[in-house]
C-alpha cells in the first residue's frame, strides 16, 4: 500500500468533515442566499459582506478567534458548557462548526447568483398557477437553479477539504478527530518525511483537479440554463 494507515484515516476523516459541512451549509446557506437574492432591505449589503468575510480574513485570524470564542471564557464556549457538551476545540464537531463559518461564502455566493439569474418571472407564473411560495421554490426554483446548487456544493466540499489554517488553530492534531489530510501533509513535511508528504499531496492534487474538472465541464451547461 502506498499510503500509511494514518494517511487513509486522515482521508476518511476529511471526506466525512467535508460531507457533513456541505450538508449543513446546504440547509442554512440556501435560505440566506435566497434572502440575499430577493431582498431590497438595507441589511442586504451588511449581511452579504459578513457572509463574504471568510474569503478575505486569513484563516489564522478566523482560527484564533474561534479558539478564543469556543474556549471556556468565550461566548460559544460558555454556551456549550451551559448545554453540558463541554468545549468544542479539539473535537470533530468543533471542526464542523468552524468549517461552516469558513466555507459559508462558497455555498451562499453561487446560490445567490443562481437565484438572481432566475428572476421574478417564473415565480410570478407559478403564483398565478396557485403554487404556494414554498411549493414554487421546490418545483420551480430548485430545478432551474440546479447547476448553481451543484457548483455551490462542489465548491463547499472542495474548499472544506482544502482547509488548513483554521483546523491547525483549533484542531489539536488528534487522529480520527481533527487530523485531516492537510494537517497530515504538514506533519509529514515538518517531520522531514518528504516521501510520505509527496504521496499524500499527489492524492490531494489528483482529487482537486478532478473536482475542478467536473466543475468546469459543467460550466457550459450552466450558462445554457441561465440563458433560458
Amino acid at each position: 500500500m502506498l499510503l500509511t494507515a494514518d494517511d487513509l484515516q486522515a482521508i476518511g476523516l476529511t471526506l466525512r468533515l467535508a460531507g457533513i459541512v456541505t450538508l449543513i451549509l446546504l440547509i442554512i446557506g440556501t435560505p440566506i442566499a435566497w434572502w440575499l437574492a430577493r431582498t431590497h432591505h438595507w441589511l442586504k449589503g451588511p449581511i452579504g459582506a459578513v457572509v463574504a468575510l471568510p474569503l478575505v480574513l486569513p484563516p489564522s485570524v478566523l482560527g484564533f478567534y474561534l479558539l478564543l470564542a469556543m474556549g471556556p471564557h468565550g461566548f460559544i464556549g460558555q454556551f456549550t458548557q451551559m448545554l453540558n457538551i463541554g468545549l468544542l476545540p479539539f473535537t470533530f464537531w468543533g471542526l464542523v462548526i468552524a468549517s461552516v463559518f469558513y466555507s459559508l461564502p462558497f455555498m451562499v455566493q453561487p446560490l445567490q447568483t443562481a437565484f438572481e439569474t432566475i428572476g421574478e418571472r417564473p415565480l410570478e407564473v407559478a403564483a398565478t398557477l396557485r403554487a404556494s411560495p414554498l411549493d414554487a421554490f421546490f418545483t420551480v426554483v430548485v430545478p432551474l437553479a440546479l447547476p448553481g446548487f451543484l457548483t455551490a456544493m462542489i465548491l463547499t466540499f472542495a474548499h472544506t477539504v482544502g482547509e488548513f489554517g483554521v483546523v491547525l488553530m483549533i484542531g489539536g492534531n488528534l487522529p480520527e478527530e481533527t487530523r485531516v489530510v492537510s494537517v497530515q501533509i504538514y506533519d509529514h513535511v515538518e517531520a522531514m518525511e518528504y516521501a510520505d508528504a509527496h504521496r499524500l499531496s499527489a492524492v490531494m492534487l489528483l482529487f482537486s483537479f478532478m473536482v475542478l474538472l467536473v466543475l468546469y465541464a459543467w460550466r457550459p451547461n450552466n450558462k445554457k440554463v441561465a440563458a433560458i
Partner: peptide, 19 residues
C-alpha cells in the same frame, strides 16, 4: 493530550483555557 504544531501553539491552547 492535544498537540499544537509548535510550542507557540501549545501555549495558545493553554493561555486561552482550552487546555
Amino acid at each position: 493530550l492535544v498537540q499544537g504544531e509548535s510550542i507557540t501553539q501549545a501555549y495558545q491552547f493553554i493561555s486561552s483555557g482550552n487546555a
